[in-house]
Amino acid sequence: MNNRLEEIRKLHGIKQEELAAVLEVSRQTIGSLENGRYNPSILLAFKIARYFNMRIEDIFIYEED
């Protein structure tokens, strides 16, 4: 699964640390999400989408194999 988290975060002008603090996750989790090394739980995906006032599928892009 790909995502546009880094792009959207930078568009909003916030740092990884700030996003992590708002979402109550570690900064490493944000880094891993942005690098595509880690896929979030549905709860975290919702929290991210709500924070940016977007839909989950606008941030996380599902790709079939």
């Binding site: 992590a20 109550e24 989790t29 979030p40 739980s41 975290l44």
Partner: peptide
């Protein structure tokens, strides 16, 4: 608390 409950850390 955040580090302990962090879903990636738990996984």
């Amino acid at each position: 608390e955040i580090e302990t409950k962090d879903e990636r850390n738990v996984t």
